[in-house]
Simulated assay, not measured.
Amino acid sequence: MAIEYREWREGDDLALLEIWGDPETVQAGQFRGTLAPSGNSPWRRCIVAEDVVDGVGIPVAAAVVHEASLHPERLWAYIEVARDHRRQGIGSTLLSMLRHETKASPSGVSRLRCKVEPGTPGAGFAEAAGLMPIQRSRLVVVDPAPLKLPVFGDGSEAAASEQVEDLATGSVELSDVVGRYYTSVHGWDSPGELGIPTVQRLFLDDLTGAHGAIVLRAPKASAFGQGVPASRKGRLEAFAISYAQVSPAPGQAAQGQPAQPSDVFIGHEPELSPEDAAAAVRDLLALIAFQYPVMLELDDSMTAVRAVVEPLLEIGKAHLQGAETLVVADPA
């Protein structure tokens, strides 16, 4: 076996797919999409390993490293080696080559990160390479009616409508809270500056699939202090952004089949106390999951959401969807 290394070129994707077959993990399937020709806008370096037989090179492995506009303090890296070529030093060589390429990154950033599934060859390789877990993420499906519905104010419809509101995804108020919440739960991998246009593009634009948002507000407040009737809306305390229609697929209701879960991003005003944040998330989750299941991405850093969802996992009113994901990275 003679292994040679070169830059990625057109047609490598098809050749590698024939050798690799289906991706072994969800993360592998996602990262395969980042394998592309090297370039500087955005900065990316991609290397292919060929097994040369009788002068003909057959691609068997590839590696990529690239900068990211979101979470710019580390570079994303990915390496995949054909099953029958593993444990022969190819992955380690590719990693060394990627680390060499990072010395020329325009940002000057050289620390690497990747996503792996625990217990897989990729996770084992990352650990051997010195990449350590910095975050765990789980997809959780919450069953319908998992929590008792909250009562707002005097229990009237008017009181509820003051605190629960459908909000346009283009709302500046919503974008502000979403951006600050995302930053607050990603201290382990800073997203950098998140202005309103960036938040809308990443989380709320039509192209993201976002089609609606429900928010929970504090009770109405007076602009003139106590003793004066409340007139302005209470501040936004929690939000839920839906990325799929919450309804059964055609024919499911008639056949008694369960509805497909709606993909939801739920969060809260980061300045709330831990107790108030958990209470706001609990009330909003009770509302949005009252009739249909919802699916949430749950990072360990999302303490308020974990405080609500993990007890549901324990009593069987929620379940994991697929395997856990670990973000692994070079030590700081």
Rank of each mutant, 00 (worst) to 15 (best):
G119Y: 11
V142F: 10
G130T: 11
Y78F: 15
L131K: 00
A129L: 05
P72A: 10
V140C: 02
H85S: 04
S105A: 15
R87Q: 14
A129M: 13
R136K: 15
G91S: 01
P133S: 02
M132I: 09
R99Q: 10
H85A: 12
G124Q: 14
T120E: 09
E127N: 06
P72V: 06
A126G: 01
A128G: 08
A77Q: 13
R111K: 14
C114M: 14
G89H: 08
A129G: 02
R74W: 03
A104P: 00
D143G: 04
L112K: 04
I134M: 10
H71T: 14
A104S: 15
P121E: 04
F125L: 04
K103R: 14
L98A: 03
Y78N: 10
P106Y: 02
P106M: 05
T93F: 00
D143I: 02
P72S: 01
P106K: 04
A77D: 03
G122V: 09
C114T: 15
A126L: 02
C114D: 09
A128E: 12
L94K: 10
H85T: 01
R136G: 01
L94V: 10
G91Y: 13
L131S: 05
R86A: 06
F125T: 04
A82W: 12
V140M: 03
P133T: 03
G108H: 06
R74N: 05
V140S: 01
P133M: 08
E80D: 11
E101W: 07
C114I: 05
A128Q: 14
H71S: 13
P118T: 03
P118H: 11
R83V: 15
S105M: 06
S107M: 07
E127Q: 12
Y78R: 03
L70I: 11
L98K: 00
E73F: 02
K103C: 00
Q88D: 05
S110H: 08
P118I: 04
V116G: 03
K103G: 10
T102L: 07
V109L: 02
E117R: 11
A77T: 15
A123I: 04
E101L: 05
R136P: 00
I90Q: 06
L95I: 11
P118V: 05
V140T: 07
R87L: 15
R136E: 13
R111D: 14
P72Y: 09
S110D: 10
R83Y: 02
V116M: 04
E117P: 00
I134W: 01
R138L: 10
P121A: 08
A126Q: 01
R74L: 07
A104Y: 09
Q88A: 14
I90A: 07
G89K: 02
D84E: 13
L98F: 04
P118C: 12
D84S: 15
E117I: 14
L131V: 03
A126P: 04
E101D: 14
S110K: 08
P118R: 14
R86W: 11
K115G: 11
E117C: 09
I134Q: 10
S107G: 14
L75A: 06
E73A: 09
